[in-house]
Amino acid sequence: MSRALVLDTETTGFDPLTGDRVLEVAAVEIVNLVPTGRHFHTLIDPERDVPEEATKVHGFTRDMLIGKPKFAEIVPGLLDFLGDDPIVAHNAPFDFNFLDFELKKAGHKVLDRARMVDTLVLAKKRFPGLPNSLDALCRRYGIDNSMRTAHNALLDVQLLAQVYLELMGGKQPGLELASRPAVSTPVVLAVDAPPVAARTPRPITPSETEIAAHSAFLGKIKDPVWAALLAAE
């Protein structure tokens, strides 16, 4: 079984080293490139203000997040859901940097970068020189993103999961041939075939006139092979 998590975060800004914090985390589970329906999602009290510029991106204000759990409180559930499996994200270093900062602040180890799968890198290899934002990829693959009026983490990971499946070859959900009973095609062996009736030989005997005409034709050819064969008989 191949398990991976598609993850996204929303934050108060661009850099945790300047005081920005995570305010939303969402992840969905996929197994053998098929979404299972299991997900992790929570809003987080960032313990600071939310700049107006950030609110324009994801729609969350400081008042909306007061009373939500702090990051240290959601860590156990998040780490349990992530397990040790690969973590897929769009522009993954951004999300990993923020999660690493929050994990260290809460007294936990950072995420192993070997687990990181960046769909932005995959998309740039597949479509060099083209726009490869999540919205652009949704349009390219015909994925309905009409509900994406803001960068909501849960909606984004659901869309990104579909994009990731397309980037990995476009496997369709539910196409689990291994889970279906195998159907064997009967093979008819030659030994089971009914015997074929013996054929009656029908030899063709040329007339004297035909033999004479053939000999005259051979006389016009230099060293004819047919004449040597007839002489051998």
Score class of each variant (00 low, 15 high):
H108G: 08
H108M: 10
K109A: 15
K109R: 15
V110W: 13
L111F: 09
D112G: 06
R113F: 13
A114M: 12
M116Y: 02
V117I: 14
D118W: 00
L122A: 05
K124F: 03
K125H: 12
G129R: 05
L130G: 01
P131M: 04
P131L: 02
N132H: 06
S133V: 02
D135F: 08
L137V: 04
R140I: 00
R140M: 00
R140T: 00
Y141H: 04
D144N: 06
N145G: 10
N145R: 09
S146R: 07
S146H: 04
R148C: 05
R148M: 02
T149M: 14
A150T: 13
A150W: 12
H151P: 00
N152I: 09
D156W: 06
V157H: 04
Q158T: 03
L159C: 00
L160A: 08
L160N: 10
Y164E: 06
L165G: 07
E166V: 02
L167T: 03
M168C: 10
G170I: 08
G170M: 06
G170R: 09
G170S: 08
G170W: 08
K171W: 12
K171E: 15
L177Y: 13
A178M: 14
P181A: 07
A182P: 08
P186K: 04
V187P: 06
V187T: 06
V187N: 10
V188W: 12
V188C: 12
V191T: 13
